[in-house]
Simulated scan of single mutants.
Amino acid sequence: MTDAAILTDGLGVRFRRNRRGRRSFKDLLAGRRRRTRPDEFWALRDVSIVVRPGEAIGVVGRNGQGKSTLLKLVAGVMLPDEGSVTVTGGVAPLIEITGGFVDDLTVRDNVYLTAGLHGMNRAQIDAKFDEIIGFADIGNFLDTPYKHLSSGMKVRIAFAVISQLEEPILLVDEVLAVGDKAFREKCYRRIDELLEGGRTLFFVSHSERDLRRFCTRGLYLDKGRLVLDGPIDEVLDRYNAEQT
Rank of each mutant, 00 (worst) to 15 (best):
T2F: 10
A5G: 12
L11I: 13
F15H: 14
G21P: 11
R23G: 15
S24M: 14
F25L: 15
K26T: 09
L29A: 14
R32Q: 08
R32E: 12
R37N: 06
P38E: 04
L44T: 01
R52W: 01
E55I: 08
V60Y: 02
N63P: 13
K67L: 03
K67G: 00
P80K: 12
S84H: 12
T86P: 02
T86S: 13
T88R: 15
G90K: 01
V91M: 07
P93H: 12
L94C: 10
E96M: 08
E96R: 06
E96I: 10
E96P: 03
I97M: 04
V102R: 03
V102L: 00
R108V: 06
V111T: 01
Y112A: 09
L117R: 09
N121S: 11
R122E: 14
F129E: 10
D130L: 05
D130A: 13
I133R: 03
G134F: 07
D137S: 12
G139I: 03
N140P: 03
L142D: 04
L142P: 00
D143C: 08
Y146C: 01
Y146D: 01
L149H: 04
R156H: 06
F159W: 06
A160I: 01
V161W: 00
I162L: 08
E167R: 11
I169K: 03
L171K: 09
V172K: 11
D173T: 08
V178P: 04
V178A: 10
D180C: 15
D180G: 14
A182K: 12
Y188W: 09
R189Y: 13
E193T: 05
L195H: 07
E196C: 03
R199C: 04
T200K: 02
L201R: 03
H206K: 09
E208V: 13
R209V: 15
R213M: 11
F214K: 05
G218I: 04
G218E: 11
L221K: 02
D222K: 05
G224S: 07
R225S: 12
R225V: 13
G230A: 13
P231V: 05
V235P: 02
V235G: 06
D237V: 04
T244N: 06
